[in-house]
Simulated scan of single mutants.
Amino acid sequence: MKRIAALLLVLVAALGLTGCATSPGQDGSSVVGQWGGVPDGAPVLVFSGEGSFTGNDGCNTLTGSWKQANDVVTLENMATTLMACEGVDTWLSRASTAKIEGMNLTVFDAQGGEIGVLAHEGTKN
């Protein structure tokens, strides 16, 4: 009986992870992988296939979860460090959504204003 309960728990957990599944862009594109980060120290977002992301704006570290519907990516539950770095534009910490446009990820703030663009670096996690 304990074995069946353990199997059911694993099945429920696996089904829960599929809840992080996304709808790829109209051209089949997925946000999974690395966007930005070149040269070293440049703003970067890295999206995992499990629905989480990490990033860095050149000063602060970011982490959270994401969902994709067609070409639009919504960043959720974002947490960021709040270090003050002289001469660093911390625009990425204001990210709320992003849109895949070919090999670029255009990033928008909570008001829908474009705040930056990250190029896809071809890294798949």
Rank of each mutant, 00 (worst) to 15 (best):
E114I: 00
E101F: 04
G28Y: 04
A69T: 15
A84F: 10
A98N: 00
N60L: 08
S52A: 09
L17F: 09
A119L: 02
W66R: 01
E76R: 15
D89E: 13
G87A: 05
G87M: 06
G122Y: 01
A119M: 03
I4T: 04
G64L: 06
K124I: 08
W91S: 04
N77Q: 14
M83V: 10
G51S: 11
A13G: 14
C85I: 03
C85K: 13
M78G: 07
T63K: 08
E121M: 02
K2N: 13
K2A: 13
V107H: 07
M83Y: 09
T97H: 02
G49H: 12
L17R: 03
I100H: 01
M103N: 12
Q111Y: 08
G112W: 05
E50C: 08
T63I: 01
C20T: 00
E101A: 14
V31K: 00
L15N: 14
Q68W: 06
K99I: 06
S30P: 04
T22A: 09
L8A: 14
N77H: 13
V12M: 14
N70R: 14
G37S: 06
G113F: 02
W66M: 03
T106E: 08
A84S: 10
T80E: 02
L118W: 02
D57C: 06
D109C: 12
A79G: 13
L45R: 06
G64T: 08
R94L: 13
T63S: 14
N104L: 11
L9T: 15
W35S: 04
N60I: 04
W91Q: 03
V38F: 07
T81Y: 05
T80F: 00
T74K: 01
D27V: 02
A13M: 14
L45P: 05
G51W: 13
G16W: 12
V73A: 02
V12I: 14
A119G: 10
F108V: 04
G112R: 03
A79C: 05
G55E: 07
T74A: 10
C20P: 00
Q34H: 08
G102N: 05
K99W: 04
V44P: 06
N60M: 06
K99A: 11
S93K: 06
M1F: 11
H120R: 13
T80Q: 03
D89S: 13
W35E: 05
